[in-house]
Amino acid sequence: MSALLQANDLRRHYRVRSGEGFFAPKSVLRAVDGVSLRLERGRTLGLVGESGCGKSTTGKLVLGLVPPTSGTVRYRGQPLPPVGTSAWRGLRRHIQMVYQDPLGALDRRLPIGTQIEEPLSIHEQVSPVERRDRARAAMESVGLQPHQYERYPHELSGGQRQRVVLARALMTSPGLLVCDEPISALDVSIQAQVVNLLLDLQERLGIAYLFISHDLKVVRQVSHDVAVMYLGRIVEQGEAESLFATPAHPYTRALVAAIPTVNFGGGRQRERFLLQGDPPNPVNVPSGCAFHTRCPFATAQCRAETPTLQPLPGGRMVACHRVHEPALGVAA
């Protein structure tokens, strides 16, 4: 049986000019460099990593907003049509997106009701009355009041705007929702509400989420599976709870160690493992394992050979030469 979403060996390279002028040398930025993903119906895949690691680009590739340099994306077994074609536009009703900045994603000059109806105006021939009824139903399902139909985006709070974006995305009953940092622009008090709404909608409607975030706590809360990206590659992938409980890759361990927790004493002392410095420039990725410049366990092999994703017992996938070393054992 084919997965809802299947991405194979996606690569997206950009030619960039390092500097200005006609004679600036061009180099290649490998934003995404060999990423494979699989997502089943009604499940959530969390995609985490520092900013600039290529997780947003992966999201755009999955949406078909940018064409991959190489690799394929299949939705329900069918490859994505080229961007801008009418087949591509037709597929939009099945794959929708939720944005980091809901105000930016909404047209400031139109009342939100009109904007929530827009997917229907685009994809379905329905009467204005039915459009309106369905928009109100969608508003209700995301927790908006019917009287807010005539409001403008700037009259709503951040959380309400994100609900508008969600309602709009839900109008055509999509099978997959790509959420790119959907809550990081919201107040902390609102974040939990939106997360709960997402979980609730998934339970009711069976939507699959590709949940892109740098916030590991939230990813842990919403995801069934998690993929960790570093400089365009997936370095670790697996079932969410076990990955957060026993991270295997040194980079994942560092990220998990950095999750703020409240420790009331008595509990297991968490390992202290902080990341040194910033990620390297993605135009100039280090040789071998890209993480070796910041990894305390790096060896000569790490500097020379690029590790590939290898399965561990229990279905976990890790790209690290030293993952089997006793000193770094999973059960550390």
Binding site: R89, R93, I122
Partner: peptide, 13 residues
């Protein structure tokens, strides 16, 4: 980054 990208992604012509 704005509304136009969002509307394009909705499938608008």
């Amino acid at each position: 980054q704005g509304y136009a990208a969002a509307i394009r992604q909705l499938g608008a012509s």
